[in-house]
């Protein structure tokens, strides 16, 4: 009975936050780890950690933390192999209006050139998280976050010019 209640609560949580998981996963997909596999891995790790969640932070902070940790761990394993930016994979999943398609592709093309931690920070920044929330999720200090965001801005500008 207890387990089935937990399971129901967890399924509901996933249903309510599936966009969050999707957005995190979309930052880290690769040939070896397509979207569905990453999504599954994140859900599995969330499920493992779910009983330990003690409301010490908001549910979204907790979910971002687990999802990002999972994707970064997977990505680090994958980095030993040659990388390929899977824009085609994104095309299959993103149903975007014609006018936006190129912009979204361009956005992901730029994001994929950032390193794993920078991708996490830019994702949280784009999700309009405060510096404090970004620091809570990533475990970095506020100063560090501010510096990193500044660097990412410069990096993006440089990449666009190229």
């Amino acid at each position: 009975m207890y387990n089935s209640n937990i399971e129901k609560a967890f399924i509901e949580l996933i249903r309510q936050n599936d966009r969050l998981i999707y957005k995190v996963c979309s930052m880290y997909i690769s040939d070896e780890f397509p979207l569905a596999d990453l999504y599954q891995e994140v859900v599995y790790n969330l499920w493992k950690s779910f009983p330990k969640f003690r409301n010490e932070c908001s549910i979204s902070t907790w979910m971002y933390r687990i999802a990002l940790n999972t994707c970064i761990t997977v990505m680090r394993k994958e980095l030993r192999r040659p990388q390929h930016v899977p824009i085609l994979e994104l095309n299959e999943h993103l149903i975007a209006p014609e006018s936006m398609e190129e912009n979204i592709k361009e956005m992901y093309r730029l994001i994929y050139q950032l390193n794993t931690l920078e991708r996490a920070i830019i994702l949280l920044y784009l999700e309009e998280k405060s510096y404090q929330e970004i620091a809570d999720i990533t475990g970095l200090t506020l100063n560090n976050i501010a510096i990193k965001i500044k660097r990412i801005k410069e990096k993006l500008k440089k990449m666009s010019e190229n």
Binding site: H93, I95, M100, M107, L126, L156, K157, S160
Partner: peptide
């Protein structure tokens, strides 16, 4: 593309995801 442009694109993507039921369906199905 600068950061504010990236943010605009992200907002549009987010809106699309809100409407896009088939995306979740496809992932769950897989």
């Amino acid at each position: 593309m600068e950061l504010h442009e990236l943010k605009n694109t992200w907002t549009v993507l987010d809106e699309q995801l809100k409407k896009n039921e088939t995306l979740n369906k496809q992932i769950i199905q897989e």
